[in-house]
Amino acid sequence: MGELIAFVVLGAIAVAAGIAVVVVRNPVHSALFLVVNFFCLAVLFLVLSAEFVAALQVLVYAGAIMVLFLFVIMLLNVAGVFESQRDPLRSQRGLAVCLGLGLLAEVLAIAVSGAARLPSGGGTLPQDFGSPTLVGLLLYSQYVFPFEAVSVLLLIAMVGVVVLTKRSV
């Protein structure tokens, strides 16, 4: 019961914050609403006994990525830019609606078909469920290939950034 209440409250806040991210005019406020959204997700992970993932969610997304977002927004002072200009991507609005509806249908399909496959509940979690040790072991044994692939992808992104922004000194 407690989990249901937590899920409803947090889910509502997360969805509201998510909508606010795209609705509010001020980019700094958008970024802050995104932080709120990340926090709700982190608490949801906590409710699911996944403390490690929750800590990483806060550490990586709220603590590092969003701070850099804010840094860039403030440094470029883009607050005024969006107010004055017309939406430069107006032609993509129809496409965005289509893709959004498609994604929604996909999520709903997964939720409906997946609900039947879930265990009926009432079971107890193993003692070290979601512990850093267990997550680490899984990452380096069963999921080692996707894990390394993602790390290479991040490396490529970093090299790309250096290549694109490097000026001859």
Partner: peptide, 22 residues
């Protein structure tokens, strides 16, 4: 006593910057 003690500390200390930036 949480089993992710150090990550908890790092996660929260990374949030301290928000107050100053905002």
């Amino acid at each position: 006593d949480v089993n992710i003690g150090i990550l908890y500390i790092l996660a929260l200390s990374s949030l301290g910057v928000y107050g100053i930036v905002l």
